[in-house]
């Protein structure tokens, strides 16, 4: 359920009394409603679902999680089984 992806706010304006913004996803942009993320500013990343930003991506938390993952040691045990699994040709 609930396909939502991160995009970057390019600009923001008020339309019909609601806050909207242009949000960039890869090589495209689309208008999204920013009314639920009053704290989000131009340049911020927001998670967008059916044309509505539902959260501002917490850049520090994202960075921290990623660093934790990155620091995780590659494992020494059972490398054979793992490599076999990863290198498996399903054909």
């Amino acid at each position: 359920m609930c396909l939502a992806i991160p995009g970057q706010i390019v600009d923001a304006q008020e339309i019909d009394g609601l806050r909207f913004g242009t949000v960039r996803f890869g090589g495209i942009t689309r208008q999204a409603c920013l009314d639920f993320v009053p704290e989000a500013q131009c340049g911020d990343y927001v998670i967008v679902h059916v044309g509505f930003a539902i959260s501002r991506v917490d850049a520090e938390e994202a960075q921290r999680t990623y660093q934790l993952l990155d620091q995780m040691e590659a494992l020494e045990e059972e490398p054979g089984a793992l490599e076999a699994e990863l290198g498996k040709d399903g054909g």
């Binding site: 992806i5 991160p6 970057q8 993952l69 995780m72 590659a74 494992l75 045990e77 793992l82 990863l86």
Partner: peptide, 21 residues
């Protein structure tokens, strides 16, 4: 794409898989 590509990294996935196993 930022916040998508980082979370699809095969090398990191391999480490997580090993850790789960």
């Amino acid at each position: 794409m930022k916040y998508l590509d980082e979370y699809r990294d095969p090398a990191l996935a391999r480490r997580l898989v090993a850790e789960i196993r």
